[in-house]
Structure formats: structure tokens, C-alpha cells
């Protein structure tokens, strides 16, 4: 029982990491009906930026928000330079562009930083603390706290600020929003900036566990897809709940299903993706879709 509780806490922490990246995917999907395959690579690059800042002597807790700001600006820049010119292209074109972008960023990171995995500092100790009989590591609790704060901040921004309102309006009803004076195109850019910033949180949180190298996010993005699809790809709340469910499931499957072990965890995520798409295509929180094209 105690062991189970510990695994669940640990799964929630992993889930928080997935949830951040899943939320990034949802933000862009909502804004333009596009799955951004470069999201993981953007997060990886941001994590290299964080490491560079920390290596230059910056305090972790200063480097963290500074990285988010840089990632935000980078996301906006990518949208303006790469996406904007092809904004009205068919969705397949856009998907292929994000795939190209993923390859490009991956290669760029390899070229600049090399492929040798690097240790990434964690501000949380791996020591454990006893909560109601279960042992939880400070590391896990810290990741849960950071992810929770970031996700809550995004929620507040989207639901309780004017700019969040105009972002949602632009995402769902671009034509009607224009008639209300909303700069729809800028809202798209803002969506990319925000997605880039949230996504980078997952990179920074997972780097101490996986070690930082250009391919670090390639499995995480699969888990994030699973989370986003499970939550209903249009729902920010769904992404978060989906992230936690995937995190806990994958963790428990790895520990308790002997044939899964550590190696087949990714297969569990893929099974979730396929299972949801077949059985409940709108996910847990998605609306039955009558989508604009």
C-alpha cells in the first residue's frame, strides 16, 4: 500500500512534466488546429539555454523565469518567421513545417551543444519525506509544485484576463473576433510564445532525471501526445488531467506489470493514444467536434 502510494506520487510528478508539454500542444492546437511536432525540440533548446545560464553562474531560480521569457520570445519569433508566411496553407503543409522545424532545432542543438548527455541541476534534493506513511522524494514534490504553479498561472491567464479572453476568442472564432477588434494574427503569435514557455518547463523539469542531450524530449513528446489526446486535444484542463493520468499509469505499469518493465512504458503511452482515438476520439474533456477547417 505504502509502495503503491509512493509510486502514485512519483507518477503525478512525471505527469506534471507530461502535462506541461501537453498543455503547450493544446495551446497551439486550439489556436490553429495544428499539432506542433516541434514542441518537444523547442523545450529541449530552452533547457540548453537554462543550462547555459546556470553554468554562467546564474541562480537556478533566476535562470528558470529568465529561460521562460526567452522561450516565450523564441516561440513568438518562430511563429512570425516560420508560421506566419504560411498561415493560410493547408494543415498538412503546416504539420510538415513543424516536423521540419523539429529536425532543424534538433540538429542545431546537436551542432552547438554536442550529443554528450549533460547533468542538469535540480533545486530539489532526492531525500524523502514521510507524508501520511508514504515516502515521497523532495524531487517529486518539487516537480509537482512547479508544474502546478505554472499550469495554474496559465489557467488564470486564459480564464481571468482580457488578453486570455481575446486569445480564446481568436482561437475559436477568428472571423467574429476580428469584427470585435481582436488582432487574431497576434493572438496566434502569443499562443506560440505561451506554448513555448510552458513546454520549456517540462524540459527543465525532466532534464535532471534524463540528462540533457538533443534527443531528450523525443520520448516525452509521445507521452505528451498521449496526455493531450486522452484529455481531448482542445482542452487545456484535459491536457493537465491527461498528463497526470498518463504519468501515473505509465509509472504503475512499469513497476507492477512485470512484462512492461521500464522498456515498454512508451508502448503503454502509444496504447493510450490508439485506445482513446478508437474508443473516445474526443477524449475526456473534448467536445464532439464540429470543427472549422
Amino acid at each position: 500500500m505504502q509502495e503503491l502510494l509512493q509510486q502514485i506520487v512519483s507518477g503525478i510528478a512525471t505527469g506534471g512534466i507530461f502535462a506541461s508539454l501537453a498543455l503547450a500542444l493544446v495551446l497551439i492546437y486550439n489556436a490553429m488546429g495544428l499539432v506542433n511536432f516541434a514542441q518537444g525540440e523547442m523545450a529541449m533548446l530552452a533547457t540548453f539555454v537554462a543550462l547555459a545560464l546556470i553554468d554562467h553562474g546564474m541562480n537556478y531560480w533566476i535562470a528558470f523565469p529568465v529561460t521562460l521569457v526567452i522561450a516565450f520570445a523564441g516561440g513568438i519569433a518562430i511563429e512570425r518567421v516560420v508560421i506566419r508566411p504560411v498561415e493560410r496553407a493547408p494543415i498538412l503543409t503546416l504539420v510538415i513545417i513543424t516536423l521540419g522545424l523539429a529536425t532543424l532545432i534538433n540538429g542545431l542543438a546537436g551542432f552547438i551543444f554536442g550529443y554528450v548527455p549533460r547533468a542538469f541541476p535540480s533545486p530539489f534534493s532526492v531525500q524523502t519525506v514521510n507524508i501520511l506513511g508514504a515516502l515521497a522524494s523532495y524531487q517529486d514534490l518539487g516537480v509537482i509544485a512547479v508544474s502546478g504553479v505554472v499550469l495554474l498561472a496559465i489557467y488564470m491567464l486564459l480564464q481571468h484576463t482580457t488578453v486570455g479572453l481575446t486569445m480564446r476568442a481568436a482561437a475559436h472564432h477568428p472571423e467574429a473576433s476580428r469584427l470585435l477588434g481582436v488582432h487574431v494574427s497576434w493572438m496566434l503569435a502569443l499562443g506560440w510564445g505561451l506554448a513555448s514557455a510552458v513546454g520549456s518547463v517540462s524540459g527543465i523539469m525532466v532534464a535532471p532525471i534524463l540528462l540533457l542531450q538533443p534527443n531528450m524530449m523525443q520520448t516525452i513528446i509521445i507521452y505528451a501526445f498521449a496526455a493531450a489526446v486522452l484529455g481531448g486535444i482542445e482542452s487545456p484542463l484535459g491536457a493537465v488531467v491527461g498528463g497526470v493520468i498518463v504519468g501515473v499509469t505509465v509509472n504503475l505499469a512499469g513497476v507492477y506489470l512485470p512484462f512492461v518493465g521500464g522498456d515498454l512504458q512508451l508502448a503503454v503511452a502509444l496504447a493510450i493514444i490508439v485506445g482513446v482515438l478508437v474508443l473516445k476520439p474526443n477524449g475526456l474533456f473534448g467536445r464532439p467536434s464540429v470543427r472549422r477547417v
Binding site: 482580457t162 479572453l165 480564446r168 472571423e175 470585435l180
Partner: peptide
């Protein structure tokens, strides 16, 4: 041009934003 994904209040806010 009603934004049906949003609430009545949010629609009004978009008018005055």
C-alpha cells in the same frame, strides 16, 4: 457573430475590451 464557445459575459467583455 456570437462566440458560442464563450459565455454571455465574455461576449460582452469582448465588446468593451
Amino acid at each position: 457573430g456570437i462566440l458560442t464557445e464563450l459565455t454571455v459575459d465574455e461576449n460582452l467583455k469582448l465588446g468593451s475590451h
